[in-house]
């Protein structure tokens, strides 16, 4: 039965999610060195809001779009909410829908799960890494909140229990041998989830490459941590043939401030500010912020805002 988070949350109102989407769009724009963006296909989980589909269609000009929807009961509602005619709906679990699609063109795939990392997620990742063409982008979002452990278990045993639960979800053979229960508290679950995801990508590509002359490589670009309620992780990057390294270099992803090539995450922390405050700060951005008089404004929030003002959702963008 459907338990999708769309029933609880309007995605377009979650500020971190909205910031993330715009940042991802900016990274995607740079992919054009690999191929005309209009020739790409976007595969995502549009839910009923299709916020990602709207943004990527309008901004990037992508016309081939597939939204995978697990909720097979309310098909008509999803079809009704389709924002553009170019969005194709595919109903079913991603694990069974992905293999039904054709994978001949370049793709941008965003596996944006509500739930935590599990074996199905790893299967989807492995499937994508087996089938994505060179010059494609793969993004994965999972809930990475430390697993809630039954209160009846005494606090000192909870880390071990958490590790056991992780092993049950992803399979014991996917949890790196140096990971211990204590690594899973706070943002630790996100860090370990990222490692497991990257291991899956790496392992699949290694097998796919065989001993081919020009092997496919994966370069991580995105490593977002944010909390819209639960702690979330988004990790992703580009898959391409290593002979295309010059194209990858031309994309100059490393000049984007939120791009992260390693385990150090970029934390998306939206500030709490009123619109009057935002408009006031805007006048000092991007390069006069040191001249801003605080006038009672919280310094912390001003700094947060200055970091991501270009992506910060403003009221006028909300759906009416």
């Amino acid at each position: 039965m459907p338990t999708g988070s769309y029933q609880k949350i309007n995605y377009s109102l979650r500020p971190s999610k909205s910031i993330e989407r715009k940042m991802l769009a900016e990274a995607m724009q740079r992919m054009s060195y690999f191929g005309r963006l209009g020739s790409y296909r976007y595969v995502g989980f549009g839910s009923t809001y299709f916020s990602d589909f709207k943004l990527f269609h309008k901004l990037l000009g992508i016309k081939k779009m597939v939204s995978i929807e697990e909720d097979v009961i309310n098909q008509d509602r999803f079809k009704f909410n389709r924002p553009f005619s170019c969005v194709r709906m595919e109903f079913g679990k991603s694990t069974s829908v992905l293999p039904k699609l054709s994978w001949r063109e370049k793709n941008i795939v965003w596996l944006d799960y509500d739930g935590t990392l599990n074996n199905d997620v790893l299967n989807d990742i492995s499937f994508c890494c087996t089938n994505l063409q060179s010059g494609s982008m793969l993004l994965v979002s999972v809930n990475a909140h430390p697993e809630r452990v039954d209160n009846s278990i005494s606090p000192e045993l909870r880390p071990e229990k958490r590790l056991e639960l992780l092993k049950q979800r992803v399979g014991e053979e996917k949890v790196p041998i140096d990971v211990v229960g204590a690594n899973l508290s706070d943002w630790g679950t996100a860090e370990v989830s990222r490692r497991i995801i990257l291991n899956e990508i790496e392992e699949t590509l290694l097998q796919r490459n065989g001993s081919r002359k020009s092997p496919l490589v994966f370069k991580q670009l995105i490593n977002f941590h944010y909390a819209d309620g639960a702690r979330m992780l988004t990790v992703g990057g580009v898959i391409f043939r290593d002979e295309q390294m010059d194209m990858f270099d031309m994309c100059a992803f490393d000049q984007i401030e939120f791009v992260r090539l390693d385990k150090k995450p970029y934390e998306i922390e939206p500030p709490n500010l009123t619109f009057r405050e935002i408009h006031y700060i805007d006048r000092y951005l991007p390069n006069r912020i040191s001249m801003l008089g605080l006038d009672g404004l919280p310094k912390d929030d001003v700094e947060k805002y200055a970091k991501l003002y270009r992506y910060f959702p403003t009221f006028s963008e909300t759906e009416i």
Binding site: I177, E200, E202, L206
Partner: peptide
């Protein structure tokens, strides 16, 4: 590979 080390272990 992490995954290989885990399997070997």
């Amino acid at each position: 590979q992490d995954n290989f080390r885990t399997r070997l272990s």
